[in-house]
Write a protein that binds this DNA or RNA. Sequence first.
DNA 1: TTGTCTATTGACAAATAGTCTATAGTGCGT
DNA 2: ACGCACTATAGACTATTTGTCAATAGACAA
Lengths: 131, 131
Amino acid sequence: MPGGGGGRGRGGGGGRHRGRGRQRRRVRGFLKPCLLVILSQEEGHGYSLLDQLGKFGFDSERSDPSLVYRALRDMEDAGWIESHWDDDSQGPKRRVYQILPEGKAHLTEWVGDLRNVRDEISSLLETYEEV
Amino acid sequence: MPGGGGGRGRGGGGGRHRGRGRQRRRVRGFLKPCLLVILSQEEGHGYSLLDQLGKFGFDSERSDPSLVYRALRDMEDAGWIESHWDDDSQGPKRRVYQILPEGKAHLTEWVGDLRNVRDEISSLLETYEEV
DNA sequence: TTGTCTATTGACAAATAGTCTATAGTGCGT
DNA sequence: ACGCACTATAGACTATTTGTCAATAGACAA
């Protein structure tokens, strides 16, 4: 039984277990734009992207890799990004993703939306503080 | 129609096709905290809350009332808010909601999360602008 | 060759959100 | 009284998104 249930313990050091009782983010829909931003800086594969998500507040201990992989596949199906296999790297082959013009366009739109969302959150916080 | 003015024009004319092609918000999970903030200022019923959501970026033309009602019922089931019927008002009876201490507690937590989300959005936007 | 680490994928369940329709009281015009 | 428009709430059903768990597989070290 390869892999097995418990924890696959990724990352250096001794087996880290992805926590039980993982908590849902309270605001969602943030994963894809984060991936697109990272990819707009440099290409990357699933695991490396997973680790970089920490910069945007994703607790990488608690993020399941399959969420990232699924988001990547979805975006590839949509034609926003494309991938090729990298066989030169250590260990198993990696599927390396690159952003496409369509992806950049979507990211641009998304950035506009996120600016609005940020403003809306701010106005909610202000209202909250008045009380 | 009291206060009406801008009107919600819901159901316009005879049929009540609410706007076709309504678009999804790209970041979700924002409805309940908004309702809680509004309720923490003053009690309100479904329709009045729907109209006030505009302040937080909800396009009230495109928000289906049933979403608001459902969120209110869920939060009442969870013990965050409570309601009573108001029969004195014009027109049909209104179910008027008030926030409870539990709801305030949840709102406080939520506000903390939203501050984080705002910061994360900001850091994503900064990263985006670097490119 | 066995076990461990990196890497990717798939199946399935749970939670959330979105659409459409039904019900009902009120007040107005005729 | 009757029908209509408007306000208000509720329910059923669908779609989409997230979250969990488990399977697969190559590389490498002991």
